[in-house]
Design a protein around this nucleic acid. Structure first.
Lengths: 198, 198
DNA sequence: CTATTTAAGTACCGTCTGGTACATTAAAAC
DNA sequence: GTTTTAATGTACCAGACGGTACTTAAATAG
């Protein structure tokens, strides 16, 4: 299909770049702390352009979350695949939570989950989907660990998956709050140790 | 000393009652979610009275936090005294975090800590003091547990105290988010198990 | 050329926020 | 009585918020 020329004024709006900027800004400050006004001011974008493209604050955050999933979380989740051991997987998760990075501290999804009930319907639904996908990943990690005998079997993998989720979320929150990464990591490792066979 | 009569119009403002209402409302909704306007509207209090008594939002929250400490946390902390075993202490903490109550879910101090950097100077200082006092309590609980051999000795009691604080804060946050109390309790108990001797 | 279509961007809307000026009221002091 | 003091409460402030009407600009269609 040929891209037939459109009729009106040509678009100068760069959607991808705007979404990336939205992700970076929401990531840095948290969804509740960044206003539409402030974001438009920062990136030099007229508000009507934003509203035409994203429908409003809810749509902008949803687009930012989608981009965050595609560019940050999905690649990490993939690398937690079945060829990795339980220890390697938890190690990788802790690296993400507390490692040195050029990106903001913490996790955009974790910050969004922290204010879940103050999100719009679209962004809220995205958060729920992604949380569900993460939980499934954690559950699979635990299940493989149980099969290989490195995770205790007297808890269900669903429960242990939720426990893993809770502990990682906690570590991400601490990292975002600026706590000492080595302290955060040590506490998380202690929490993970509760999953080992007794 | 005799209470000599004051000169101007007599005061009808009830400070204690207002502080109690402020505590209840901040507890229920979180410090960031309750505006001065909304609070005054709810309790039928003119804003100038509030500003004369508390100086502003910061002072009101600080007063509410003081009241919370005196009426809620200090009585609990006292009951965690040296006559209690480690298990009894953690049990009592979990009861506070997840038990049935007539008060709001979660903990006003925990909610305030979650938004520490958006607090005013006075309320922020109160939060820091109370957090410090809690940490000391947790550390003492761990130390007694170590002395009695029910807590592993290969971690410092400072570190284990911070770990306890992290886990209790997490449980309180989950409870405030409306998660199933038995699930919250089970996860916290698993996390506490990491402190037992191996 | 003119008409039409589409995007860009100024300038505004109503609502809420934390905070306050000021007129009013009720007591004690004289 | 009048004056003085201190509390009350209406009515306001400037600024920020999410969102939008409308003018202007830039392209194609005829």
């Amino acid at each position: 299909m040929k891209t037939k020329k459109k009729r009106g004024r040509p678009r100068t709006f760069e959607r991808e770049q705007t979404v990336a900027l939205a992700m970076a800004n929401y990531w840095l400050e948290g969804p509740q702390a960044l206003s539409v006004n402030e974001f438009c001011r920062r990136v030099g974008l007229p508000k009507p352009s934003l509203y035409r493209e994203f429908g409003g604050e809810d749509g902008l955050l949803a687009a930012a979350l989608d981009h965050y999933w595609e560019s940050v979380l999905a690649p990490i989740a993939e690398r937690l695949g079945p060829d990795r051991s339980f220890d390697e997987s938890t190690e990788a998760l802790l690296d993400f939570a507390t490692g040195e990075r050029d990106t903001p501290d913490g996790c955009l999804l974790a910050k969004s989950r922290g204010t879940r009930n103050r999100l719009g319907p679209t962004a809220g639904a995205r958060v729920d989907e992604m949380s569900r996908a993460l939980l499934d990943t954690y559950e699979a990690i635990v299940r493989r660990g149980q099969e290989r005998g490195v995770v205790r079997r007297d808890v269900t993998c669903e429960f242990a998956g939720r426990y893993l989720d809770t502990q990682i979320t906690t570590a991400l929150r601490q990292a975002a709050a600026g706590e000492d990464p080595s302290e955060v990591r040590a506490q998380a490792e202690l929490a993970f140790a509760a999953l080992l066979p007794s």
